[in-house]
């Protein structure tokens, strides 16, 4: 259950990135999973560099790594948008999608080439936890790390919801989402808003990458592909374009995966997730918290 929640938090964070980008330019950012993978890699690298300095408290170390990962991953997100998507705005519908697949393949193999194909194990940084219940040899335990992850996710969620509903950046984002041309006419800098959306998505992906690094303690260049797919599933499940929906979808997917692993053959857990995606699309194409999609001519 708690494992599922933690996993769900990671998916949810990535899913927010998908949902925001989709909401604003109506495009699936296929490369988002790879951005998350890059975030995880940058976290591992920063941890390794920091290792010899030996920080007094792990919290401080994590904060430093978080900052580094946020900055560098955001630059990746920004660059991807600038190079591969912006020139294609206004092109036909499949063009940015195909370009995104190209970016995804490129980033995956770029990291593969530069960092090698092996798993990169990391020493656990945060240890210990509370014992919730003990029963006949079974110990139900919640670790500090899990508490931290869930708390951090909730805080980020709340922060982003506020950002979108209260600040001027959020207002311009919502304006672009509704009508890009009109927003531009009214003085919203559309290009910058979209760039910032990508940066925010990448930053959240970096947080997810860091959490993954801390939680699973191993990173390789392939983690982005499946995580991206599942996060997208989460975004669709929750209703694409809706932030709380993305989070809810992420948590649901995480829980489903955890339950499936506990009761059914573990090899088929990914199949179960995609099965859910298809079922959701059949019965509720707008997702759990989505609005009906009105197609404009």
């Amino acid at each position: 259950m708690i494992n599922g929640l933690t996993l769900g938090a990671i998916y949810g964070l990535i899913a927010i990135g998908y949902t925001m980008v989709y909401g604003i330019i109506g495009m699936i950012n296929f490369a988002h999973g790879e951005v998350y993978m890059i975030g995880a890699f940058i976290s591992v690298i920063t941890f390794t560099i920091l290792g010899p300095f030996g920080f007094a408290s792990p919290v401080l170390a994590i904060v430093v790594v978080l900052m580094v990962a946020l900055v560098f991953t955001s630059v990746y997100g920004w660059t991807v948008e600038r190079i591969a998507y912006r020139p294609l705005r206004g092109s036909f519908r499949l063009a940015p999608l195909i370009s995104a697949i190209g970016v995804s393949i490129f980033l995956q193999n770029y990291v593969h080439m530069l960092q090698g194909a092996k798993m990169k194990p990391v020493q656990p940084v945060v240890r210990g936890g509370f014992v919730l219940a003990e029963e006949g040899g079974f110990v139900v335990q919640i670790t500090y790390l899990q508490i931290g992850i869930i708390a951090a996710t909730l805080v980020l969620m709340a922060g982003f919801t506020l950002l979108i509903h209260r600040t001027s950046l959020g207002r311009s984002q919502r304006a672009c989402e509704q009508d890009r041309k009109m927003a531009a006419l009214l003085g919203v800098n559309v290009d910058r808003t979209i760039s910032l959306t990508f940066v925010m998505g990448a930053a959240l992906a970096a947080v997810a990458g860091l959490i993954f690094t801390l939680y699973y303690g191993a990173v390789d260049f392939f983690i982005g592909f499946l995580a991206g797919l599942k996060a997208f599933t989460a975004a669709v499940l929750g209703g694409i374009g809706s932030l709380p929906g993305a989070m809810l979808g992420g948590v649901l997917i995480g829980l489903i995966e955890a339950f499936w692993s506990a009761h059914f053959p573990i090899a088929y857990k990914d199949v179960a997730v995609f099965g859910i995606l298809v079922i959701v699309l059949i019965f509720r194409p707008t997702g759990l918290l989505g609005r009906p999609d009105i197609e404009k001519v």
Binding site: I98, S99, G102, F106, Q108, H112
Partner: peptide
Amino acid sequence: MVLFGMAMVLIMLWRP
């Protein structure tokens, strides 16, 4: 594969 991904992006940019 790196070149392959890059080519896909470039083709889209240059000649969608």
